[in-house]
């Protein structure tokens, strides 16, 4: 699957289907700090991702000191 990552913006190719939560664990990314968009649609943690999918890993944490 093609995976788009941010901060910095980059693209990686991963082989093998897995769940959203497993993908985040594999990438060592916090589930609380990211959303997964599969082929343009938001999906929950137990959704299955397949090799032909295009995945965006969107970070949600923002902000300087207030």
């Amino acid at each position: 699957m093609k995976v788009l990552l941010r901060n910095p913006k980059r693209e990686v190719e991963l082989a093998g289907g897995r769940s959203v939560n497993r993908l985040l664990d594999d990438l060592e990314l916090s589930r609380e700090a990211h959303l997964i968009i599969r082929n343009g649609t938001l999906v929950p943690g137990d959704a299955r991702l397949e090799d032909e999918d295009v995945i965006e890993v969107r970070p949600v944490v923002s902000g300087g000191s207030t």
């Binding site: 941010r6 901060n7 969107r58 970070p59 944490v61 923002s62 902000g63 300087g64 000191s65 207030t66």
Partner: peptide
């Protein structure tokens, strides 16, 4: 804007 503010990156708050 999804990208983080480049100056804020790595600050104590984050």
């Amino acid at each position: 804007v999804v990208e983080e503010c480049p100056i804020a990156a790595g600050n104590r708050h984050l």
